[in-house]
Amino acid sequence: MISFKDLQYQIANKTILEDINLEIPDGVFAAIIGPNGAGKSTLIKLLLGLIEMQEGSVIIDGIPQKKWLKANSFGYLPQREEFDRSFPATARDIVLMGMAGTLPWGRRFNKEHETKAVEVMHMCGIGEKAGAQIGSLSGGEYQRVLLARAILTDSKYLILDEPEAGIDRPGVTSFFKLLKKFNEAGKTIITVSHDLHTLSKYCTFLICLNRRLHCHNNAELINAEVIRNTFGDSVRLIEKEY
């Protein structure tokens, strides 16, 4: 379980996150939603330890975050990974990055590591591209490579920051189906997303964030009013009876 306690975060005197108290239970498919500038990516970066905590704390599996991060890593898929398309790496090299932290200095990957990486790539539907140069991959293929890298960490938590960015609509659907499979296999998934339509089919736990938390609950308990409060005037809701 991941707990955020009294979290506050400011940048240049502007409050980005305020009074965040949140518990994400194990095994959920959680989605963090909110308008642009709501603090979603900041919350993820604080969780990953990519930015320093200012006030409040994060507890993971009952252990303070800094201590937890010394012994564990998250399976993380960033919003847009900056990389040089001509960088001399194959898709398999990038996937292997997920387990590079488990090897000491001076130790190279062996056949066993490489086989495991390719197996995970097959699970993510990208196995046949293992030897391809990263510059030759499409946006959707690259997202699957990054998902395979996150899976290879063997972390029970998968954190995704707008994974649908740069993928076409059919690609997004199959990507979320894949995430659902990993969720059913026991992974706790926390994703930032704007795609409410897709999320409504897959996520089980919704976190509505707009600087403050507007809700965090089982997805079916979230109603239009909460969504309206989170997004303000930036969305127009059309409610339908099913």
Binding site: L48, G49, L50, L69, S73, F74, Y76, P78, E81, E82, F83, F87, A89, D93, I94, M97, G98, A100, G101, T102, W105, R149, T153
Partner: peptide, 16 residues
Amino acid sequence: FYLSYNPEMSKVFRIR
């Protein structure tokens, strides 16, 4: 190799 690829991601995956 990974430091040259992406230093921030190297940190996330605990590469020393």
